[in-house]
Structure formats: structure tokens, C-alpha cells
Simulated scan of single mutants.
Amino acid sequence: MNELLAQLAHCIEFGKVNKDAPYPPDMKGQDGADELTQQLLEAGHSASDILSQALIIGMEKIGVKFRDGQVFVPQVLMSAKAMEAAMNHLKPLFAEEGSVRKGTFIIGTVEGDLHDIGKNLVAMMVEGNGYEVIDMGVDVSADAFIAEMQKHPGAAVGLSALLTTTMENMKNIVAKIKQVEPDRQICIGGAPVNQEFCDQIGADSYNPDPQGVVEYLNRLAS
């Protein structure tokens, strides 16, 4: 692998946003994701190559570490910030290049629930792994999800909830989506839900961590 691509993947994995960022301490004063992405573009690398050969590699590594309990939410958030710094350079170029993304993922926190940290982590991880992400925010109704689905045929849908009181809303949203589009793939996540609840409400996939969502989407895309 090109040395700059390898350095960028390392910055994503360890959350080095830019040269001024103090985290991680052992990379203080070194170029971060921001500078390295710019250098790669100036050297003639395409946005799609930078995504596939650096960002996805770094995000996969931090995702697996998080799933295995080797790192925790703060480290993943720093990786997501580094990925975002790189993506700020790449997003305007994807349309120009006609880059093909792996697929589209619609995600939101269900109606009645205003929590977004878990949802944001999943959205950032999925985007960093090569998907277009439609982040609908929090307190999203079934009608809003369905309206967005109609704009993106074939996109998988992710529902997040943190409160036990909004699990019923998640159930109702899944039922309404399946009534309109029985074959639409829906994955759920959040502290109060589990595989048993997923099976009970007719969702297609439950994942306790962002990497699980990425692997689920990769299976759909393959």
C-alpha cells in the first residue's frame, strides 16, 4: 500500500484528526486525517481510492476493536471525527468522479426518543465503510421513514432507540414500513433492544454495535 494511504488508515484507526489535535498523545505534531487526505488528492489519488484503501480500512479496524471490547466509545468518536475530516475533502468529489458507493442506508432515532450518540456512531461507521448515509436525526416518525424510503429504493433502514418507553414506537414503525414494503430490510439497535425483540417485531437484523451493522450491510451488498 502507498505509504500516505497507510498513514491515513492509521490516523482513522487511532483518531488523529489533524496536525493540531493533541489526541492521540503519541502522534502529537504529526499530520492527521485532514492533511493526509489533502496530500493524497494533490498527489493524484481519486476520492474513491482514498475511501476504499484508507478510510474503510481504518474504520473496519476500530469497529472490530470496539465490538471485541478493546476500545470504548470515546476512541470510536475520535476515529469518527478523523473520518469526518477526511470525508469533508472527498464528498464534493464523489459526484464528479461518478464514484459508486456500496449502497444507501437510511437511519434515525425513532419517534419519541431524542438520543443520538449511538445513532451517530453507527452513521459515521457506515459512511466510513463506503455507504451513502441518509441521517434523519431523532424523533423520526414512520411516515417520515417511509417518505425517505420512497426516494431511495433498495436502501436499508436503521432504527435506533435508547428508551424502553420508545420500544413500542419502534415496533409500530417496523410494522408500518413492512406493511408498505414487506421486503425492505430493517435493522434495529439501542440499549433496550435485543435479538428476541427483533424477532418479535419482525425486523430483519439486530446489532449491538456499529461494526455489526456494517457487516450486515456488506452481506446485503454482496
Rank of each mutant, 00 (worst) to 15 (best):
G130I: 00
M125Y: 07
I107S: 11
V133K: 05
M136I: 01
D143A: 14
H115V: 02
A156D: 02
I134H: 08
V138Y: 10
V126F: 07
A155K: 05
V140F: 03
A155H: 05
D113K: 02
G154S: 08
D143L: 04
A95Y: 15
V122I: 08
D139T: 01
V100N: 07
K151T: 10
V138W: 13
G108M: 07
G108C: 13
P153T: 14
A156N: 07
G154V: 04
V138P: 03
K151E: 11
G108P: 07
I106N: 13
I106T: 13
P153A: 14
A142H: 00
A147R: 14
P153H: 12
I106V: 10
D143P: 00
A123V: 06
A142R: 02
D135L: 11
L121T: 01
V138E: 00
M125S: 13
F105M: 08
G103D: 01
P153M: 07
M149R: 12
M124W: 11
S99H: 06
A144L: 11
N129Y: 00
T104F: 07
A147F: 04
I134R: 14
F94D: 15
I117P: 01
N129A: 00
E96T: 15
F105Y: 15
D113F: 05
S141W: 08
A156P: 07
D135E: 08
D135W: 11
M124Y: 14
G128Y: 08
M125H: 06
Y131G: 02
A155P: 05
